[in-house]
Design a protein around this nucleic acid. Structure first.
Length: 341
DNA sequence: AAAGCGGGGGA
DNA sequence: TCCCCAGCTTT
């Protein structure tokens, strides 16, 4: 389709949102925005982007920070490996690239946390490199415009959509083209009730004429949810509590929580938790993740356990804010008056 | 090729 | 409830 790129770019120039990372060609700032926005809505990620630009104005500020501070600033955004990889890559650029942030696809793709999409985005936005982005917006938009039934999460689909996106890319305006095609997906060709009447490609859209919009894009895999049972123990003496760092390869890696015992049901594991010294027990708190349903109970104690695990840390209540916490824990503290009495 | 990894918002 | 969001890494 010859006029695909001109049509979406004309539309984009008139209808684009004013987003801060669109007003720069600094690859560092663009990288920051792209990592934060992975699997994240712009409305949710925007305040994190502003915070990170404020707290880490340059790649060296980020590289020289410690991981706990970065995770603390990332708290609540989810997919915490993004923050760990962010820090790792910042140090690589400081130590191996003399602090100069790369803007070419070949170098970018080597960075941890940067895949084909992110390397294409940064290199096209910062360097006008001829690389087509394929994100969730692009899958949806292209699967509809060309009425493609191939599953977007299959190996075949990934290859097909990347090649189609490459073919449609206007080689002289790759940055604007990539912004435009994603903005079309985000503002017009939305998952539910797309605004086809405002779409510059309505008359050319095959899914529109075939009335297959609602079944595009086609996905094959469905996520299955696992249920887990967490028993958190809140040990408090005066103004000090115990926290432990989650170091295993599991959810919330390198974040902190109250010492926790996982069981296969929500019944109190009496053999592992001393019921005699427990002063209070919370209701079962439900917390939903994409692939896990967590059922948590908080058990309260007014003295420390006789044996204190080496991975526990004693934290003054006023200093809890310096420890990155899973949303489940953070929300529980918000809702609980316990620590403010 | 498939699974694992957060949290929030909309319908 | 279910689906999706400026995806990537590990198994």
């Amino acid at each position: 389709m010859n006029d695909f790129s001109p049509l979406i770019r004309s539309w984009y120039r008139l209808n684009k949102r004013d987003l801060p990372w669109r007003n720069t060609i600094d690859p560092y700032q663009i990288w920051l925005s792209e990592i934060i926005m992975q699997q994240t809505r712009v409305e949710q990620g925007l305040k994190y982007y502003l915070k990170f630009i404020q707290n880490y104005p340059t790649i060296l500020d980020l590289a020289n920070a410690n991981e706990q501070s970065i995770l603390n600033d990332w708290q609540g955004l989810g997919y915490y490996s993004r923050a760990r990889n962010l820090h790792h890559s910042a140090k690589v650029i400081r130590d191996e690239y003399e602090g100069v942030f790369p803007k070419d696809f070949k170098t970018l793709i080597k960075l941890k946390g940067v895949g084909v999409y992110t390397a294409s985005a940064i290199s096209s936005f910062a360097n006008n490199e001829n690389k087509a982005v394929v994100d969730g917006n692009v899958y949806r938009f292209l699967s509809r415009v060309f009425d493609i039934d191939t599953a977007i999460d299959s190996t075949e689909g990934i290859k097909l959509f990347q090649e189609l996106a490459n073919d449609l890319l206007d080689t002289k305006k790759s940055g604007e083209h990539n912004q435009a095609i994603m903005e079309m997906g985000a503002l017009i060709c939305t998952p539910k009730k797309p605004s086809c009447d405002k779409c510059p490609l309505q008359v050319k859209c095959l899914a529109y004429s075939n009335q297959t919009i609602t079944s595009r894009p086609h996905k094959s895999k469905k996520t299955k949810v696992r249920t887990r049972y967490f028993h958190f123990q809140i040990y408090k003496e005066d103004n000090t509590i115990l926290l432990e760092k989650r170091e295993k390869k599991d959810i919330w890696q390198n974040l902190f929580q109250f010492p926790m015992i996982e069981t296969d049901n929500s019944k109190t594991p009496a053999t592992k938790i001393s019921i005699q010294s427990r002063v209070h027990q919370s209701e079962v708190i439900k917390h939903i993740l994409s692939h896990q349903k967590l059922l948590a109970v908080f058990h309260y104690f007014d003295s420390f356990p006789t044996i204190i695990d080496s991975k526990f840390v004693k934290v003054n209540i006023a200093d809890i804010q310096n420890y990155p916490l899973p949303r489940l824990i953070d929300k529980y503290l918000e809702d609980s008056s316990y620590f403010f009495k």
